[in-house]
């Protein structure tokens, strides 16, 4: 890059930064209404933790679309094809690493279950639990106990899409109530737990897939 182009880039960056700062300064003072509104409606949310109430009840459609985005990202990777060569078998690893994986993975599953349960009344929830599950899958793969995914089978596909499907099914079933994802107050807790449980498994598989699909594509014949 020559000096003129570099200067232009610097000026552009400075201008953009200045515009951002100006935009932030222009923002109206934060509304104290939102936290109060959340607090006022906690009783009908079906959960006791405000963050979960917002994510899965008050603004449930946001979360629905976020899960769809993650799933699309993985689908994009799968659509790009498995690369040349065959799916690699799991790389052999030493017994020390394998023992760590055999020991730690059940505990990670337990931890994911705990985070899922905790989400109803304190920090936790499907996303964190799914991330822990994905970590377990990555550890199993690194220890040579889980092969990379060249192309997922039917069961795996169901697992990947299941969270979104359950979410959509609940949303569709509730359309009769007049609005998307307006849970009946006395079943809200159960429905949210159902959605979160299926989301945990799907998010875990999707996040693990980001690693395992790439690992399969990178392997050489």
């Amino acid at each position: 890059m020559n000096a003129a182009a570099r200067l232009a880039v610097v000026l552009l960056a400075l201008g953009l930064g200045g515009a951002l700062v100006a935009a932030v300064l222009e923002l109206p003072a934060p509304h104290p209404v939102l936290p109060e509104a959340v607090a006022a409606h906690m009783a009908v949310s079906g959960v006791e933790h405000p963050v979960t109430a917002v994510l899965l009840n008050f603004r449930g459609y946001d979360t629905l679309l976020e899960v769809a985005v993650l799933l699309l990202a993985l689908l994009g990777m799968l659509a790009a094809g498995p690369g040349e060569g065959v799916a690699p078998a799991a790389l052999p690893a030493g017994p020390v690493l394998q023992t760590l994986a055999r020991l730690a993975v059940p505990l990670m599953i337990l931890m994911a279950g705990y985070l899922l349960w905790a989400g109803a009344h304190r920090p936790g929830g499907a996303f964190q639990a799914g991330a822990v599950l994905a970590g377990a899958a990555v550890l199993l793969h690194l220890a040579g106990l889980l092969p990379a995914w060249a192309s997922p089978g039917l069961l795996l596909r169901l697992g990947l899409a299941g969270g979104l499907l359950v979410f959509l099914a609940v949303a569709a079933a509730l359309l009769g109530q007049g609005a998307l994802l307006r849970y009946p107050a006395d079943h809200a807790g159960t429905l949210i737990l159902l959605i979160e449980a299926s989301l945990t498994i799907s998010l875990g598989l999707i996040l693990a897939g980001l690693f395992l699909v790439l690992a399969a594509r990178r392997a050489r014949p």
Partner: peptide, 24 residues
């Protein structure tokens, strides 16, 4: 307690980056 949970998660997953480094 949520921060204790965070510490637990970090402890459980701390091995992964190190293992990924040594193996890959």
């Amino acid at each position: 307690m949520p921060l204790v949970d965070t510490a637990l998660v970090l402890a459980l997953l701390a091995a992964i980056a190190g293992v990924a480094f040594a193996r890959r």
